[in-house]
């Protein structure tokens, strides 16, 4: 899978790849939840490349974000990885379907007909090249080798650099469109629980219970995991005192949080579980009460 994801990155093939994660490594835990593939989604294929990865917390979101995933793949000509937790993959929940015509479908940008010379990988009207389908009259070359704007293999550093700059820029310059996240009770929050997938549901339940006990707890749920919402998390780090990152792995998301937060006085802690079970609201509440956490002197 990873080798061909790399192919999709270099040939700029719009596609959506669903990874319903199970506990690993190897055959691991068939079939119990784990969130162990976050970094694999980012770095699994070899070579530097941008990637988009989405992560739903419910069946409804799985439905909605799948549509978003296809639209992002088409709009930016990139593979989009759809990460799910096993429990969400197997879950039955109520889903509200939109009416026909309410589903946003982004059509791929095509080159105008009748061009003398079609440059399939050129920066023409934007960073994302128009894409002709085979059989429509533009005969061109698609390869997994680095290529020039005409699509032919190249070893020229200037052409390779230009390609890298373009494919990273097409994602990095459109973060407002790509980054999806949900903030809850962050206005006055001193503690934020940052999570994704099934863990976010426990986080939200725990945060509500903590609020009832008078603690200023909010949540940040990431629906776009990659690119990582660096600025959102950095800004959060300048407002809050504590960030708790529960996740079903040994600490993948927390590394990103630690990387982004620039204030050393902000306490960043994790809850980790790898045994096939999920993290419960009670576990999160317990962690919030833990004496060793800063601010828990009472």
């Amino acid at each position: 899978m990873q080798e061909n994801l790399g192919y999709a990155c270099i040939a700029e093939v719009p596609c959506v790849v669903v990874n319903v994660q199970r506990g690993g490594p190897s055959t691991g835990l068939p079939t119990s939840p784990a969130q162990g593939d976050l970094m694999q989604a980012r770095w699994g294929t070899h070579g530097d490349h941008p990637i988009i990865a989405l992560y739903p917390t419910s069946v409804q979101e799985a439905f909605e974000l799948t549509m978003v995933a296809f639209n992002l793949a088409e709009k930016y000509r990139t593979p989009v990885i759809f990460l799910m937790d096993e429990v969400i993959g197997h879950m039955r929940e109520k889903v509200v379907f939109p009416r026909e015509g309410q589903i946003p479908v982004l059509e791929r940008r095509k080159p105008p007909k009748g061009l003398d010379k079609f440059q399939p990988f050129a920066e023409d009207d934007g960073l994302v090249p128009a894409m002709a389908a085979f059989g429509e009259g533009y005969r061109y070359h698609v390869t997994g080798l680095h290529h020039d704007p005409a699509g032919y293999p190249t070893l020229r550093p200037d052409e390779i650099n230009r390609w890298f700059e373009r494919v990273f820029a097409k994602i990095e310059q459109n973060l407002d469109d790509i980054l999806l996240y949900r903030e809850e009770d962050l206005e006055d929050a001193e503690t934020v629980i940052l999570s994704c997938g099934i863990t976010a549901r426990a986080a939200r339940a725990a945060a509500r219970q903590a609020r009832e006990q008078g603690r200023k707890v909010g949540t940040l749920t990431l629906q776009t995991i990659w690119p990582f919402p660096e600025k959102v998390v950095r800004d959060l780090g300048s407002r809050v005192r504590r960030i708790l990152v529960p996740e079903l792995n040994r600490g993948q998301l927390i590394r990103e949080v630690q990387r982004c937060v620039r204030h050393p006085e902000v306490a960043i802690g994790g809850i980790n579980r790898l045994d096939g079970g999920v993290i419960t609201p009670a576990q999160i509440l317990e962690k919030l009460e833990e004496r060793s956490w800063p601010g828990n002197s009472h």
């Binding site: 080798e3 061909n4 192919y7 085979f134 059989g135 005969r139 061109y140 070359h141 997994g144 293999p153």
Partner: peptide, 11 residues
């Protein structure tokens, strides 16, 4: 790559 068809060089 050398021939003027629709061409696809894969993995």
């Amino acid at each position: 790559v050398y021939v003027d068809f629709n061409t696809l060089h894969t993995t």
